[in-house]
Design a protein around this nucleic acid. Structure first.
Length: 230
DNA sequence: CCAGACGTTGTT
DNA sequence: GTCTGG
DNA sequence: CCAGACGTTGTT
DNA sequence: GTCTGG
């Protein structure tokens, strides 16, 4: 799946890769967690694309209360029919810029994080959906997003049985274009990035704590502690 | 008609 | 909001 | 996703 | 165990 990710590319790369405007500084994010504000790319007025800051964890528009369990992922097998996802899937899809994502394995009773990155590095985009939620009083609103996942089919299964859908650069326009209703075979018309396009390595478990927000999150793990006590 | 659900993952 | 179940 | 908290009263 | 916070 995908429950923590990396977005460290500078503003220039965002502009070049996604064709968006970006005036403000975009700080590198080494440890993006659910419920945090993140940048997405979406369609805007006048056929342009825009960068928008939304919260990771989709809150369906019909929810009375905000609720506690954030919908951070949506399964590609069911996203078209699920009540929480079907409307955003038709009309408000988005790209979620990233440079890598994290998975954990339990090794020797510890949660060992791994960083998965595109072979050769570089900025990529998860397939995402977003929506707007209006609070009960109507005086405030919140934009949120979820990342689509699919089955992991090859060697990456040693890390996790699910992985995020990564949109190929040539299909950004197709992913962002709204449809209502969604054409038959819409998802099948996409050729998402294969897992062979990614590689992974162990990183420091300091990134397990979301308060770690710097480059230490992608450093190699510390040397294994020696059995020095007896 | 009204009431109730509406999600994913991992773990058991 | 929209669907399912009763 | 993981980490961390999880409670009230009275006294200082 | 389960919820909250990040």
């Amino acid at each position: 799946m995908c429950g923590r990710y990396l977005m460290t590319s500078p503003k220039d790369a965002m502009i070049k890769t996604f064709g968006v405007r970006a005036d403000a500084h975009i700080p590198p994010r080494y440890n993006i967690a659910p419920n945090q504000p993140v940048l997405i790319v979406r369609n805007a007025e006048g056929g342009r694309r825009e960068l928008a800051a939304v919260e990771w964890g989709l809150v369906p528009e019909w929810k009375k209360e905000r609720g506690d369990k954030p919908l951070i992922n949506a399964r590609m097998e069911t996203v078209i029919e699920k009540p929480s996802f079907r409307s955003p899937m038709k009309r408000t899809r988005c790209l979620v810029p990233f440079d890598g994502w994290f998975e954990w394995k339990s090794l020797q009773g510890r949660k060992q994080p791994f960083l998965i990155t595109p072979v050769g590095g570089g900025l990529q985009a998860f397939a995402g959906i977003w929506t707007t939620w209006h609070g009960p009083t109507g005086d405030h609103w919140l934009e949120t997003m979820a990342i689509l996942t699919g089955p992991t089919l090859g060697p990456m299964r040693s890390l996790h049985s699910r992985m995020p859908l990564v949109v190929k650069p040539g299909q950004y326009d197709a992913w962002l274009k709204p449809h209502d209703p969604l054409p038959r075979g819409f998802l099948e018309s996409f050729d998402f990035m294969p897992e062979t396009a990614f590689e992974w390595r162990m990183v420091s478990s300091r990134m397990n704590d979301v308060r770690s927000e710097g480059p230490e999150c992608i450093e190699a793990p510390e040397q294994e502690r020696q059995h020095s006590l007896f």
